[in-house]
């Protein structure tokens, strides 16, 4: 453990510090948006958005190479793809009356397909693995500022519209009757999810996004009676597993993404089991 502390304070290895800061910073939108996603049961929409991000990343890298657009950062491409997917899924399910799961599956697979093709057309060793499974240790100081900015935007919007989002998630029809534009708030929630997913991709990669978005929130749901409490617990839980996971990753020299995910999965299952055992015990005592 002291090795880890030394490394964190060592000016020669800034990447580990950046990784920790990025992990803690992004835990806030993960917990907040993750709670909405778990409560509204739209985990698979988040999954589809996450996987479609590969299309944006691939497209951006391709454009950088072919057209020399240096400003076309993979993160920029990822953001465009995520927002586009969120709007497509939202509009088709809200207005076109399409089956939600069909649209989700289509966006999921098409996004991946586009991304893999673009990566194939870009010469050089474009390994999709680092996008699929993430590498938080590649985060730079510039990325930190970007993450901080996106963080602030997501949290500010979610906090300001908290009551409206909760009301729309709980009973969209009633909200609509009160004159609230429920569809607009649902789309806002999906767009906030998209931005959060892009942040997550830098931390744990595309494939593992769903886990980090939902496991801390699902853990929190075991204790929380209200959305705000659920969010607070989810943020703390997320920050805990991300930092601990990074520590484990550094100490044991394993990949950071899987270390974080396995840890959050373990915490979730342990809490679930603990709550069940305690309930069962309480029942046998009252019987």
């Amino acid at each position: 453990m002291s090795d880890l502390l030394d490394a964190l304070l060592d000016p020669r290895v800034p990447f580990l510090r950046y990784a920790f800061v990025a992990g803690v910073l992004s835990s806030v939108p993960f917990g907040v948006i993750g709670s909405y996603i778990v409560a509204r049961r739209i985990t698979y929409i988040a999954g589809a958005i996450a996987h479609s991000v590969l299309g944006g990343i691939g497209g951006a890298i391709f454009l950088q190479y072919r057209l020399g657009w240096d400003w076309c950062d993979p993160l920029f491409g990822a953001m465009i793809a995520a927002l586009l997917s969120a709007v497509i899924i939202g509009l088709t399910t809200l207005y076109a009356g399409e089956r939600e799961d069909t649209v989700i599956g289509a966006v999921w697979a098409i996004g991946m397909g586009i991304g893999l093709l673009f990566l194939q057309w870009t010469p050089g060793n474009q390994d999709p693995m680092s996008y699929l499974f993430g590498n938080i240790l590649l985060i730079t100081r510039g990325d930190l500022w970007l993450i901080l900015g996106l963080d602030a935007a997501v949290v500010a919007l979610a906090a300001f519209f908290h009551n409206k989002l909760v009301a729309v998630c709980f009973d969209a029809e009633f909200a609509r009757m009160r004159g609230v534009r429920a569809e607009a708030y649902y789309l806002l929630l999906l767009c906030l999810t998209a931005v959060t997913v892009v942040l997550l991709v830098t931390v744990v990669g595309i494939v593992l996004v769903i886990a980090l978005l939902t496991l801390p929130a699902a853990t929190a749901a075991q204790f929380a009676r209200r959305m705000s409490v659920m969010m607070a617990i989810a943020v703390l839980c997320g920050a805990g597993v991300v930092t601990t996971g990074l520590g484990v990753s550094y100490s044991l020299e394993v990949l950071s993404g899987p270390a974080i995910i396995l840890l959050s999965g373990g915490v979730y299952l342990a809490v679930l089991a603990g709550v069940r055992v305690r309930r069962g015990w309480a029942r046998t005592r009252t019987d």
Binding site: N163, V166, F170, D171, A175, R178
Partner: peptide, 13 residues
């Protein structure tokens, strides 16, 4: 995750 009061407050949304 909402309390009864949270639900009632939605009438003022």
């Amino acid at each position: 995750p909402v309390t009864a009061l949270d639900v009632v407050l939605m009438g003022r949304i």
